[in-house]
């Protein structure tokens, strides 16, 4: 099954105003940066974006925030983006902050056909407001529901024409679960290879979860916190 689309505009075709989109990445690491730039170009508005972070002011999802293309963000940590904080505190932007592990599991559950699950994370906090509480093994847990999206956009290191994906280091993060949870999943990859070139033993995301794949034109891979040590 050849899932390759040659042009990025074909890859993102069908994303419309008001849709819910998942975007992989942790901070600026492993984000689908080519697709985000294309969404800026498309000018799609009123998006609900599910992503662990919201980029920085001038990169990643920050680019969509600057242009007010996002109506609602579902994230776990947004500390690196001043424009985000401003829009949230002023009420322009709807924000649902959820614990990182719950966010990951909610995406996984969405892709795995599990409608909800109990977790101890957030019990006794404002995250638990309005949610069912049940005690298991003497410990209170809250009910969290699955997340799905109209489109999931993920970034992989290598991908083949069948949509099989391999991620690199910590650029994996949320990408595998989000690939599972998209009605349509788009993968942008650094290297696109023919089917059979990747060792089936080392596939992270099987191609069944990916509908469209393309080679990203440019990967800037910005570093948020460049920390180094001196050579002895």
């Amino acid at each position: 099954m050849n899932k390759v689309v040659d042009h990025i505009s074909d890859a993102l075709n069908g994303i419309e105003d008001g849709m819910t989109i998942m975007l992989g990445g942790f901070g600026l690491c492993g984000i689908p940066e080519n697709s985000i730039k294309e969404l800026v170009k498309m000018g799609t508005k009123n998006l609900t974006c599910i992503s662990n972070n919201a980029g920085v002011d001038d990169y990643g999802l920050g680019l969509l925030l600057q242009r007010k293309q996002i109506k609602k963000m579902i994230s776990s940590y947004v500390g690196e983006n001043e424009e985000f904080e401003r829009q949230m505190l002023s009420g322009e932007l709807e924000v649902d902050l959820i614990p990182q592990g719950s966010l990951a599991e909610r995406c996984r559950a969405g892709g795995a056909g599990i409608p909800a699950f109990f977790t101890p994370a957030g019990y006794g906090t404002e995250v638990a407001e309005g949610k069912e509480v049940r005690v298991f093994n003497g410990k209170p847990h809250i009910l969290e529901s699955a997340l799905t999206a109209d489109f999931a956009i993920v970034k992989a290191w290598k991908g083949d024409t069948e949509g099989n994906l391999v991620f690199k280091a910590t650029a994996m993060n949320f990408n595998p679960m989000m690939a599972m949870a998209g009605k349509i999943t788009i993968a942008e990859v650094e290297e696109l290879v023919p089917a059979g070139s990747l060792d089936p033993n080392f596939i992270h995301t099987p191609g069944i979860f990916v509908q469209r794949i393309f080679k990203g034109a440019v990967f800037e891979k910005r570093i948020e916190q460049r920390t180094v040590r001196k050579r002895a």
């Binding site: 901070g27 690491c29 910590t170 910005r222 916190q225 180094v228 040590r229």
Partner: peptide, 19 residues
């Protein structure tokens, strides 16, 4: 530990987004 200068990898960070 943190990488030596020039050996930072954007794909390899910790939860504080540090290389």
């Amino acid at each position: 530990p943190f990488p030596f200068e020039g050996e930072e990898d954007a794909d390899l960070i910790n939860a504080g987004k540090q290389t």
